[in-house]
Design a protein around this nucleic acid. Sequence first.
DNA 1: TTTGTATATCGCAATATTACGATTAATATT
DNA 2: AATATTAATCGTAATATTGCGATATACAAA
Lengths: 109, 109
Amino acid sequence: MGLIKTEKFSESQNQIALFAKAFGHPARVAIIQHLFKINACVCGDLVEEIGLAQPTISQHLKELKNLGLIQGTIEGTSVCYCINKDNWTAMKTLLNDFFNNNLDSNTCC
Amino acid sequence: MGLIKTEKFSESQNQIALFAKAFGHPARVAIIQHLFKINACVCGDLVEEIGLAQPTISQHLKELKNLGLIQGTIEGTSVCYCINKDNWTAMKTLLNDFFNNNLDSNTCC
DNA sequence: TTTGTATATCGCAATATTACGATTAATATT
DNA sequence: AATATTAATCGTAATATTGCGATATACAAA
């Protein structure tokens, strides 16, 4: 198979999994961290920054873009990428709710 | 290929990606949520709760166990699973640091 | 108009993931 | 001992992901 049975799960569970999968590759983690570090649009230098081939980086950027976590604006021949603040915040809320379950009252093991 | 080039990234970036990948499947999200909801050890009922075949659930549990996020104790013929609090907290800290970058001063796009 | 530069897409090979039937292992029950 | 129950493991098929060379596209500069 290799095919996820999304129909078995809630929309929220599938959404959490989709966002988490986006961060499930170190290159995409590095891309996001670099966008935060530079704290502005990044035009072009991601390939040398990350150290993978240009088509590979382009593909990772596409995935993050499709999820809405980043956005790109064309500037002449290059494209400037940055975090999409609204969607980033929404993703953070969803994942924080998932992470921040109360462990204190859990009494077992 | 299909092989992640981990040597290109920092230990932290790889660790974030490994944890995120664990949540990159809705079944594993559902398992964790159920463990939190029940708020105690779960013995056996995960298969009917999630709705995938027993070997499939067992495999997902193994992945979460290998990462240290859950732990299982044998109780007779069944196994009781629960969240590993210490490791869960450590994971949460790592991912929160990654998520909670300051977006306010980001001035672009 | 030709050339250069930057990014996206195509196509493919290698590897990983998902799912589950069949089986095994280990303990409980009768 | 024989049988039942529960979970892990094996083996395998289907699909997804990763990575990159080759190519296409789009704009800039000469």
